[in-house]
């Protein structure tokens, strides 16, 4: 393989590599996602998914502990009887929800 041909290949691969790196860095991150905390069909609070947080939501004797970390949100513990919300995987995509039906408690990721 001639020297100039090798050089052309090298330059093209270099362009490809730098383009990939540049585009990767320019890629918009998932900033600005929020999570709605809903109780009995009413949004009571909107939290930022990028700010780590642990918070108890207490209504009468109903307690749900919500944790936000690494851009995901989950229910750490709850005193509901079926524990479905606690067993739900952490959510992070817009539209995903975690529901605690016994408490009428819902988490929903929004833009």
């Amino acid at each position: 393989m001639s020297r100039s041909r090798f050089l052309k290949i090298f330059i093209l691969l270099l362009i490809l590599g730098s383009a990939l790196i540049l585009l990767f860095l320019l890629r918009p991150t998932d900033k600005g996602k929020k999570v709605n905390v809903i109780k009995d069909n009413t949004v009571i609070e909107t939290l930022d998914l990028n700010e780590p947080l642990q918070k108890d939501y207490t209504f009468g004797s109903d307690v749900n502990t919500v944790v936000i970390k690494d851009g995901t949100v989950e229910v750490l513990s709850a005193n509901c009887h079926n524990q479905i919300c606690v067993n739900s995987e952490p959510i992070s995509e817009v539209g995903e929800t975690i529901a605690c039906l016994p408490h009428g408690f819902l988490l929903e990721v929004v833009e």
Binding site: L16, A19, L20, L23, F24, L26, R27, P28
Partner: peptide, 16 residues
Amino acid sequence: WGLFYTYGFFLVLVGS
């Protein structure tokens, strides 16, 4: 033109 930033990386990667 923001689409370029959103999909650019994936499309170049998939394209290659």
